[in-house]
């Protein structure tokens, strides 16, 4: 069972205090979007083996959504950052690249 640190309240809590929210940094496509763009937004996911960027909500705590860079193989948590960031913070990115030097975000 994972241990995650909420970047909003700083509490390291167990997985049962969070709710998962799927892949992070999806770009929403609304009315006027092409079928391809909308399909990508609604249905297509990266499902990476290795570092993934994903959404979590601290549902039993402060209620805030945040994003995590986590390794889907080793389960290492490279870092967490607020959901309002468009990219992982430099610190989180550096932490991922320390383990995966050629890593580039899925965004």
């Amino acid at each position: 069972m994972l241990l995650l640190t909420c970047p909003h309240c700083g509490i390291a809590a167990e997985e049962t205090e969070f709710n998962p929210g799927g892949e992070a940094h999806l770009k929403r496509h609304g009315p006027g979007a092409s079928d391809e763009d909308f399909e990508g937004y609604l249905f297509l996911r990266h499902n990476v083996k290795g570092p993934v960027l994903e959404r979590w909500r601290h549902s039993y705590g402060c209620g805030k959504w945040f994003l995590a860079a986590r390794d889907s193989v080793t389960l290492q948590v490279y870092g967490t950052y607020p959901a309002s960031l468009a990219h992982p913070s430099d610190e989180v990115g550096d932490s991922v690249r320390a383990a995966h030097p050629n890593w580039r975000t899925q965004i």
Binding site: C9, A13, T16, E17, S59, Y60, G61, C62
Partner: peptide
């Protein structure tokens, strides 16, 4: 803020 058994 946490849970006590099954409730927030």
């Amino acid at each position: 803020r946490t849970r006590l058994a099954q409730v927030p």
